[in-house]
């Protein structure tokens, strides 16, 4: 028996919004430590890794490890049926071929359940090595989203250059060129507004704007985003989900021929 309850459906809607543009389907691996999903996008350029810890749920029970392959478009249809303040419970029997989403209104007067067929997905699992990154940038997630949106107008690719002075995002194309420089903030009213840079070595890398823009769909999950970079390895874009876990996107760089 698997059962996981979240007080608010909003968080699950936001998580789905953060992955459904990149993935058509995904396997949710459930164990007593929580729920994990790892999947590459269709073109195998990026990897999504979602971790939701069991202690972040209002209720969590997982008697046996189960892997639930879900069509994310179908899941989105179901989650549209939940109000933001509904409690959501995800339930499945051991070895079941369906999963049930139950939504309860705050006054418990409306209860709906939606059963969805599970899929057998033959997905490759990738081992992600522990890496000490040369540069780790933390910045407001909305600022990162804004920069990705703005620079995507100029080119398919964006250069991210990180030094101890700051981080620079650049794009150039037929229209012209764009550069956005962010310096580390000295003092801020709110922690969420801070830009911080931990640098061992300066790094310059090139990435596809399309994927960076897809990652920023996770912005509603967290006020801050963390970018981890080292030369010639995938960028990690991480959004922490308060008290519940995180979503990490790995993006392969573009390299010189």
């Amino acid at each position: 028996m698997f059962e996981a309850r979240l007080i608010s459906a909003t968080i699950l809607k936001k998580i789905l919004d953060a992955i459904k543009d990149l993935l058509n389907e995904g396997t949710f691996d459930c164990s007593d430590s929580g729920i994990q999903l790892q999947a590459m996008d269709n073109s195998h350029v990026s990897l999504v890794s979602l971790t939701l810890r069991s202690d972040g749920f209002d209720k969590f029970r997982c008697d046996r490890n189960i892997s639930m392959g879900m069509n994310l478009g179908s899941m989105a249809k179901i989650l549209k049926c939940a109000n933001n303040d509904d409690t959501v419970t995800i339930k499945a029997q051991d070895n079941a071929d369906t999963v049930t989403f139950m939504f309860e209104s705050p006054n418990h007067e409306k209860v709906s359940d939606y059963e969805m067929k599970l899929m057998n997905l033959d997905q490759e699992h990738l081992g992600i090595p522990e890496t000490d990154y040369s540069c780790v940038v933390r910045m407001p997630s909305m600022e990162f989203a804004r920069i990705c949106r703005d620079l995507a107008q100029f080119s398919e690719s964006m250069l991210i250059c990180c030094t101890k002075e700051g981080v620079k995002f650049s794009a150039s194309g037929d229209v012209g060129s764009a550069n956005v420089k962010l310096a580390q903030t000295s003092s801020v009213d709110k922690e969420e507004e801070a830009v911080s840079i931990e640098m061992q070595e300066p790094v310059t890398l090139t990435f596809a704007c399309r994927y960076l823009n897809a990652f920023t769909k996770a912005s509603p999950l967290s006020g801050q985003v963390q970018l981890s970079m080292s030369a010639d390895v995938p960028l990690v874009v991480e959004y922490r989900i308060q008290d519940l876990g995180h979503i990490r996107y790995y993006l392969a760089p573009k390299i010189e021929d």
Partner: peptide
């Protein structure tokens, strides 16, 4: 000219 790499070039298949 820069070429887009695949994420599979960096992580081993488990």
């Amino acid at each position: 000219k820069r070429t887009q790499q695949s994420i599979r070039n960096y992580f081993n298949v488990k």
